[in-house]
Design a protein around this nucleic acid. Sequence first.
DNA 1: GACATATGGTCCCATAGGGAGTATAAGGCA
DNA 2: TGCCTTATACTCCCTATGGGACCATATGTC
Lengths: 210, 210
Amino acid sequence: MSSDPALTTTSYAILGLLSVRPWSTYELAQQMDRSLGRIWPRARSKIYEEPKKLVRHGLARAERQLVGRRPRTVYAITAEGRETLAAWLREPGDGPVLECEQLLQVFFAESASPADTLATVRAARAWAVERNRGNLAAARDYQAGEGPFPERVAQLLLVGRFLTDYYRLVAEWADWAAELVERWPDDLRDAPVAAEHFAETVRRAEWSDD
Amino acid sequence: MSSDPALTTTSYAILGLLSVRPWSTYELAQQMDRSLGRIWPRARSKIYEEPKKLVRHGLARAERQLVGRRPRTVYAITAEGRETLAAWLREPGDGPVLECEQLLQVFFAESASPADTLATVRAARAWAVERNRGNLAAARDYQAGEGPFPERVAQLLLVGRFLTDYYRLVAEWADWAAELVERWPDDLRDAPVAAEHFAETVRRAEWSDD
DNA sequence: GACATATGGTCCCATAGGGAGTATAAGGCA
DNA sequence: TGCCTTATACTCCCTATGGGACCATATGTC
């Protein structure tokens, strides 16, 4: 339909939201902040650009409205958009990408003081508590039958469970790590070799041995 | 020291590797593929650019060597580099960033067939098995006292445990999700409301309630 | 001697992050 | 009534990043 840049996964994320209902760009940005951004985080500026690309590809329609004297644009998916979305869903996408500056800092802990590393590990726990708060609130809403998209509850349950377990994992790891770091000497080369901790790690990883 | 672009977290990742020992750029790229890339994934082209930036900032030294007629560059950290690294380690960095196209596809499962979603969930499990393989092998090496950096075993244990539990989480989630998806009707709005699954999710998220 | 694979890189462009900047609308309060 | 704050509704720009294409030499194997 055009020689426009090809669709990216971010395009499909926006297209997916439009398949649920029409949104203004501002609402799309909010939605990314509050929910979709937890599994597909993107900068605000991109959220405002993507719908325009979808329109150029014929996958969405833009409707200009007026709120007082201020214009706003509401986007809706087209039939071709629904087909394109379905085609994307037919091919499993990439697996999870993890990127964690805090883990990087733990990885290079020998160049820091144990106190610094402890602070980093505690920051990881605080992050998990904060993220868990919003996720728990959303889960309780749906449990009470009060979520905004009751017809999507089956899908949301799957994603919500992943996030719940993920935040929990970060917190439990941080607690365990903090206990170890508290007993670290200043020179990490002198740290006691934690044979049983390694054995436990290996045990936990052996699930994939058939 | 310069009006060069500022250091990024990727700069510190490379600087950290240089604090362990000198590496050629090719070795750095390999190291990112095999180990550091699991917590800070970056494109190869960037790995070749970063050390040059470190040199411009006075944080690393480059030594040109010859292997036959072919030149290669080996980078080593400077005293200023060690100070800069330590300063970065003093401030806890950003928390984990998760980005998962597969979860996005599950999120929009009402536009796919249950069979498509099942394939996506199975792809997630396969991803976890694959990632776990390398991680388990490394853990076993260190457990046997055969890892390449025995003096770094304390830090590596912490990061290794995080990854172990993370891959396990993905696999267990995928198994659980597959069971549910297998019972999905074609129209997801007719899917049975899984009250007990929501209750279980809420229970698992309640760890942060004080 | 031929060929595959490992080593050691450079270059380019579209995508992405993220902050600064610009306006208007709506709601609260004095 | 007017003022102030917050929400709505965007645009622009600069640098970082992803990732593939491309190039060359060295080493190991048959």
